[in-house]
Simulated assay, not measured.
Amino acid sequence: IAAGEQAMWKRLCDALGADDLLNLPPYATEDARSVNRVDLNQELSGRTRQRTTAEWMAIFERGSVAAGPINRMDDVFNDAQVRHLGVAQPMHHPALGPVKVVGQPFKLSRTPSEVRHPVSDRGANTEEILETIGYTGEDIAALREEGVI
C-alpha cells in the first residue's frame, strides 16, 4: 500500500505543479503527511485556490488524480452526473411549492427506491418521534416548557 500511496502523492504533486512539496521531510511519507496534516492542508488549499474547480477537475483527470468537486448547494442539482443519474427528484412542498430533493444515486432492480414526499419542516415530527421512543405526552410537554424542544 505504501508504494501506491506514494504514487498517489506524486501524481497529486505533479498535477498541482508542486514538485517542491514532493520530498519535503514533513510531507515525504504517508506517516509524515498524516502527522503534518494541518500544515499540508493549508499548503494544498493555498495552491488549489489559484484555479477554478472546473480547471482543477480537468487537470486532476489528466493526471489520474482521484478527485471530486465539493459543490455548493446551488451547484449540486446542476452537476452533470446528478442529472444523468436522475438523483434530483421534483416534489411539491406544502409551504415552498415545487422543490427538488435528493433521491438515491443508484438503482436497484429488485428493491427500487422511491421518494414519496419532501423533507418535513424542522421540528414537524418531534412529538411523533419522542412518542415512538417512549416519551409520554406529559414528558413532551415538560420538554417543551423547559425549552428543550
Rank of each mutant, 00 (worst) to 15 (best):
L24W: 03
R33Y: 06
A124I: 02
L21E: 06
A15H: 08
G68M: 11
R37S: 12
A7Q: 14
S113M: 08
Q50P: 07
L40Y: 04
V76G: 04
P105V: 09
L16D: 03
H84N: 03
C13L: 05
V76R: 00
G137H: 09
A88K: 03
Q81E: 12
A124V: 01
F60N: 02
R62A: 14
E127P: 01
E55K: 06
A80G: 04
A80T: 08
V119E: 09
Q81G: 01
L143E: 08
L130G: 03
N71T: 01
M8Q: 15
E43A: 11
D74W: 02
V101R: 08
S109K: 10
T111I: 05
G103N: 12
D121L: 13
V87G: 02
A54E: 15
R122C: 10
A2P: 07
D139V: 04
P112E: 08
H92L: 13
I1D: 14
S64H: 13
D14R: 05
I129P: 03
G123L: 07
A3T: 15
T111D: 03
G103E: 11
E61P: 00
D20M: 02
L85R: 15
K10C: 00
R11M: 07
L143K: 05
G147V: 06
Q89H: 09
G63E: 09
T52R: 08
A67F: 05
N71Q: 12
V115W: 02
E5F: 12
A124C: 00
Q50M: 13
L24C: 04
R144H: 10
R51M: 10
R116H: 10
D74Q: 10
R62Y: 00
Q104P: 08
D121R: 11
H84Q: 10
G134Y: 06
A54W: 01
V102I: 15
E30V: 11
E127V: 01
W56K: 08
P118L: 03
N125Q: 15
H93D: 14
M57D: 02
P26F: 04
S64K: 13
V148P: 07
T53E: 09
A67M: 06
D75C: 00
G97E: 08
A142Q: 12
E131A: 09
Y135I: 00
P69F: 02
N36S: 03
E138N: 10
D14G: 06
N125K: 11
R144E: 10
D14I: 05
E128V: 06
G86N: 09
D19N: 11
P69V: 04
Q89A: 08
G97V: 07
Q50D: 10
R122K: 11
